[in-house]
Amino acid sequence: MSDRLDDLERRIDELRSAVRRAMRARDTGTARVLRAELRHAERAWDALVSTVPAGPPEPPAPRLVTVREQVHQALHLLSAPAQPRLIVAVSGAFFGGTIRSAQLTSLRRDEARSFRSSPYGRPYYLCAALTDRLSPARGLLTLSAWPLERRVIGPLSPRVDFLTCAIAIATAAATAAAGAAAPDERATRLLAGLARNIPGGADGDVAPPDPERVAAAARAELAVHAERDTRDRAELAQRATSQLGDVARLFGAATLSTIVKEEAR
């Protein structure tokens, strides 16, 4: 067996060098063929050397709540458009969630496909936030049940939504803490991360954040932006209502795809 291992190691070394040489010469075709051979040799090596089969250990925890449902829970708590990172953190901190950001990347596309094949066939959809061009905003998820005003994004909305989420999380943290012996570490860390980005939300970094104080600070700043944001969003929502069909209203209008050869000046 060790002879075979030696041979394989030699072969792997040769192939690795050959791949890197090909990459350096930008010979991607050759590199691809070599890489395939390399993977093959590496798998053979793994099989020989490992007593247990290689590969990331998959915890076979039964997933009772689907990814979709977990995202819905988190968004429902946040009650504002949010990025996958925040959704995952909220799900973990308050619902014992198991989702990872990577699982959220194709979610919006899947939802759109489902909606197209049977409109309004589900009680809710995870859908897009709409930019001032009514196109889908990158990296934001919303719930179809929300009023359009909440799902459109004006210039102040990213900040307003952040503050709204902070208030929701602080409230949830306070509720959770009231019912538990010790505050959940993940919730505390999440809240601390938000608190230091809100003026008056925290004293330095050391003390654990006080949910009441975070919520109060967020409300104070929110009051500064609320009026203009509400106006901007109402305007955008009106435009969306009058210009967009059902699919586009939920998942955003396609961006102009015409290729303009001439530089616009």
């Binding site: 690795r16 590496e42 090596w45 793994d46 490992s50 290689a54 590969g55």
Partner: peptide, 18 residues
């Protein structure tokens, strides 16, 4: 080049030996 061609795939494989 080592990072891209050797180390990253080895880490992703989850095999400490590799």
């Amino acid at each position: 080049g080592f990072d891209a061609e050797v180390l990253a795939p080895a880490i992703d494989s989850g095999s400490p030996e590799r």
